[in-house]
Structure formats: structure tokens, C-alpha cells
Amino acid sequence: MRIFALGRKVIDGWALMGGLVLAVIVLVNVWTTVGSLIGLPFAGDVELTEMMVAAAAFMFLPFCQLHRHNVTADIFTSNMNPRFVSLLNGIASLVALGFAALLLWRMTYGMLDTKEYNYSSTILSVPLWWPYVPILVSLALLFIAAVITTAEDLFGAS
């Protein structure tokens, strides 16, 4: 389906953007280390790294679901009827779908609390609801990825 093709593109692109976030983390840490060795230390690297890795890791989840990187033990089912195996895979995709919806709902409240109570980072006072924005987008995309894999597993859509 065309709409699925678009979904796949967006999810892959989102993972690449997560890779860019990682690249920024690399640069921040290299810069901090070199700066520290030449007498120009920067104290915000720990909190920036934490925030950005959290965002990047969430940004990778839809990609992981779409390309089925989540480890399964398939030894017990490898000799079963392929249609039964597809059904099992479909159930797993539905679980991912439910999980994405639940977490999207709960973490939206997480972001609102974080904003309302003014959670912020220690040294740079960066508001901690900022990383929640890409995280919530990631969870919405995880939901879409799970819709796509469910359709593949249960209805053979591609």
C-alpha cells in the first residue's frame, strides 16, 4: 500500500535523524574531552549526553519494530505451519501496537508533569520536557510501525 510505503520512509528517515543525534553526542563528548585536556572544561556534557541518548534510543524503536530487530527465540516454532507462525508474529505485533499506544498516552502525561513542575537539568538548566517531544513522535511512529508489521503478519500486506 502507498500509505505503508510512506510510513516506512518516514520511519527509516526518523532513525537516520536519531543517528544524527548520536553524531552530535559524539562531537559534544570529543569537544568536552579535548577541551578538558587543554584547560577549557565544559560541565554540561553529562546531562546533554543523557538527554540526547534517551531521545536517540526512542527514535530507533520504530525502526527496530519495522525491520524486526527485536530478538525472538524461534527454535520452538521453526518447524510449525507457516500460517501459525504468521499468526504468532501478528500477536507479537499487536502487543507492540498496544505498548506504543499505552506508552504514548502515559508519556504525554509524563511530559506535561515534567513541564508543569519545571524539571530541568542540573548545570545548564535545560527543560527536561524538551527531549520528550522527539520521544512522543517516536512512540507515534512506533505505533505506525506496529500497524504495518501487524498488517504484514496477519493479512500478508506489504
Binding site: 578538558s36 572544561p41 560541565a43 554540561g44 556534557d45 553529562v46 546531562e47 542540573t122 548545570i123 538548566s125
Partner: peptide, 19 residues
């Protein structure tokens, strides 16, 4: 540094805070 205000103390004393 132990905290936000601790980082300020370290800065005020002319040293660099490291988290």
C-alpha cells in the same frame, strides 16, 4: 560538583565544575 549551586560555588572560587 555536587549540585547546581555547588557548581556556582566552584565557579565563584575560580575553579571549573565537572559533573
Amino acid at each position: 560538583t555536587p549540585s547546581r549551586t555547588g557548581a556556582w560555588v566552584i565557579e565563584a572560587l575560580g575553579a571549573s565544575p565537572v559533573a
